[in-house]
Design a protein around this nucleic acid. Structure first.
Lengths: 226, 226
DNA sequence: TTCATTCTTCTTGTATACAAGAGATTTGAC
DNA sequence: GTCAAATCTCTTGTATACAAGAAGAATGAA
């Protein structure tokens, strides 16, 4: 997955396209035109195709043989499935972190929680997203299992566009903040089960959240013909 | 991840190299020569590089910028980390499967268990590996979460070379068989927690198994200089 | 002899040229 | 007017040519 970052054009392109995808710049079902993107970036098709490969491997787009690269938002069922796995991975991280987290890591996590709250208070949702992301990444690291941390981060990234959607729902942010605090408390008490349970609930799509997600999903990603 | 299998050379090459890696044909740290492999397969470097990309994304090899593709067996710590995640994914599959598994699926699972036992009785370890793999894949499918199933299968594949190593240890196979039976029983009783616990234990590297793994790891994959 | 530096060679990264399949369009028949 | 078939265009897949960096060898100085 990780390659030692020499300045390869392909890597740069990958990053840029990834950003475009993750910020929802492409519609579902949209085809990414090799030649158009290549000249847009001022490179040949070769590094662009490498980027496509890499993005496809991460699941951010789909390659269909002799048809091209397509943005394929997961359908609603798959999205729920993905969040289900994400919830479990995060729970796993929390479980392990509760035993292994260092003082320094706890301070860092504490800071992101405060930064999140500050961002909400100021209505700066971009900042909120950033800090929320940091919170979760710190948690992955704190698990002490670097493989797990990478896998969690990978799925986290893949779900990024849909998490935004989820958080946009009214009143979700304060609730989310309470959960962050609860997670922090569980870590502080070194209570693995509580931390796991909190995180599982924090991430998973259940009850009202299910309906909220479904509603905003319908709104955001109307399925085009394949 | 999945692309609709048109006959692309790149895909074929990928499969073939993957097989070579998974069956342990390459030593740790070995560099895969693009031109040599290309002419060996009778293709140009282009599809070969695509295959490398894809394999790197699956974690089966590592691309270092301007240095090439290297086989990098995970070090022992990472291997244990990976099995830890695998155990949890399988537990998750088992948990869900206990509620959702169909009659047909139970019959299929039952058959693989018997086939495994038959293979052991005949000392046919290749057949055993095959059926054991089928057992686990059926379980992934039975989870009812197709995303989870894919992720589990992906990690399973990546761990393939090391699972062989693990099972080679004396007396491990009969024990493994008992566990399969116990898992089956838990599924039959629709007992999610039991199924999860059984699978977690079945896969995870603990106690004696830890020592066994470490021993055979040292024997099999002496770390070369990077 | 040993270390540093330069140069050579080899390998990867990128661009371009060529092949071939998929989809659209047009043309013909009914 | 509609449907089918053939053609044509456009896009992807593969090969090859070219550029540039990395590793190693050779050369020179201390």
């Amino acid at each position: 997955m990780m390659r030692s970052m020499g300045t390869r054009i392909a890597d740069t392109i990958r990053e840029r396209i990834e950003q475009m995808i993750v910020t929802g710049e492409f519609a579902d079902g949209e085809r990414l035109d090799e030649v158009k993107l290549a000249e847009q970036f001022g490179v040949s098709r070769t590094p662009l195709r490498e980027a496509f490969q890499s993005l496809a491997a991460s699941g951010l787009l789909t390659l269909e043989a002799r048809r091209g690269a397509f943005i394929r938002h997961p359908d609603f069922v798959e999205l729920v499935e993905m969040f289900e796995v994400m919830a479990e991975l995060e729970a796993m991280c929390g479980f392990r972190a509760a035993r292994r987290v260092s003082e320094q890591q706890m301070r860092d996590i504490g800071r992101t929680i405060e930064a999140c709250e500050a961002a909400i208070a100021q209505g700066d949702s971009d900042e909120y997203y950033r800090e929320n992301e940091t919170f979760h990444h710190l948690l992955y690291e704190a698990s002490g299992n670097s493989f797990l941390a990478r896998e969690a981060a990978r799925l986290h990234k893949r779900l990024k566009p849909y998490r935004r959607m989820q958080l946009r729902v009214n009143g979700r942010m304060p609730q989310s903040m309470r959960e962050h605090r609860a997670i922090y408390a569980a870590l502080e008490k070194s209570d693995p089960k509580a931390a796991a349970a909190m995180l599982r609930q924090h991430v998973s799509i259940q009850g009202e959240r299910f309906n909220d997600l479904m509603a905003s999903y319908r709104q955001m990603a109307p399925r085009k013909a394949g």
